[in-house]
Write a protein that binds this DNA or RNA. Structure first.
Lengths: 192, 192
DNA sequence: GTCGTTCTTTAACGAACGTTCCAAAACCAA
DNA sequence: TTGGTTTTGGAACGTTCGTTAAAGAACGAC
């Protein structure tokens, strides 16, 4: 019956993620997306309707990979503090790596560029944040039960605090050097 | 001799700050700036050369008002923890106020939108961040001398940590509610 | 092999972009 | 009042914007 798509939707979405990630939403043009994905203009719009819809899909795809990454790191071996350090230092490494060209975190970028402006994007960003927060919450709860964290501490508060520290690193990562970011990481862990 | 300007440059800059603040750099058009400032196209470009230059000037003007505000709050009465709480809660109030329409902090927004892309903007954002960090550093140093803060703590590290918390609140402010942001503030202060 | 459907390609759309130009207006010193 | 200089408002620049239209190509079902 119908003619099948000539491309892998996930691959195209990954290319769109990369393009939006490097330039931001407003500064990315339809031509940038055509160049980035390799699709023709028509195919792109036929498949994704509009730039805004494509961005929403890209954000969903980004969450798939990035939140999963954090969840896996948190589920790894070591004490709670070791695992939190690993997650935060992963941000530090990412922010200071030449290769990642100041892309930062797409969800954080989207939160500041479109948060409160585009409801669909805001909701997706919130979902992304909450997914990471919940992963942290689960680990803090378990750690408290194990006695790694004081019984008087509130796991939900610790998760939100750690999330804020993570995103603080994302902001300062644009201007601060590795040593400063590492110091902040250590001070944060000390506070747990 | 020459004809004097028919406008107050500071007022115009404040209007430009407001416009960029609400929409971001890329999403703000020359027409938006004309509408916002009330100047004609010609006057605007004659006075500020380009959109990019105008943004740089606006960012400088923003720093004048916003960093000064933090410095004044820090120089106010109360213990170090009370004063830090006042600064962080000021961010929380700003982020959750209906009136401020999700503008956030212009320096943080600029850091994420243009950090690493535009060198001039990056340098100005860094200057803004460092000014706040140094204000915090001065207070933490004094507080340690007064015995409010443990002698073993590093005032520089505490300043950077607090700065990161502040900007973490700016990010989460786009999606989280007041109660969560307040909780994060308290956890942060507890860590000092 | 034909049909129905969807995908792809290409060209083009009107609108809006950032910027430039120019002539008229306005100011102050002389 | 005149002359010199700068600012002003507005029109216009060529380019790029996000999006759409139209026609042909490619596939699976029969």
């Amino acid at each position: 019956m119908p003619r099948p798509k000539g491309f892998d939707p996930t691959e195209v979405l990954d290319a769109a993620v990369d393009t939006f990630w490097r330039k931001g939403y407003a500064a990315t043009s339809a031509q940038d997306l055509v160049d980035g994905t390799g699709l023709g203009r028509g195919s792109l719009y036929h498949a994704f309707t509009s730039k805004q819809r494509l961005f929403e899909e890209a954000l969903r795809r980004y969450e798939d990979t990035s939140a999963t990454r954090v969840e896996e790191m948190l589920a790894g071996p070591g004490t709670i503090r070791e695992r939190i350090r690993r997650v935060l230092m992963d941000v530090v490494e990412d922010e200071t790596a030449e290769a990642s060209e100041h892309r930062g975190c797409l969800a954080v970028n989207a939160a500041l560029e479109l948060g409160g402006i585009d409801d669909e994007v805001t909701a997706r960003v919130r979902h992304n944040f909450e997914r990471v927060e919940n992963a942290l919450y689960v680990e803090f709860t378990a750690a408290r039960q194990e006695g790694e964290i004081g019984a008087a501490r509130d796991p939900r508060a610790l998760a939100q605090f750690t999330l804020a520290a993570m995103y603080g690193l994302r902001v300062l990562g644009r201007t601060a050097d590795r040593q400063v970011l590492t110091q902040i990481t250590e001070t944060t862990i000390q506070a747990l």
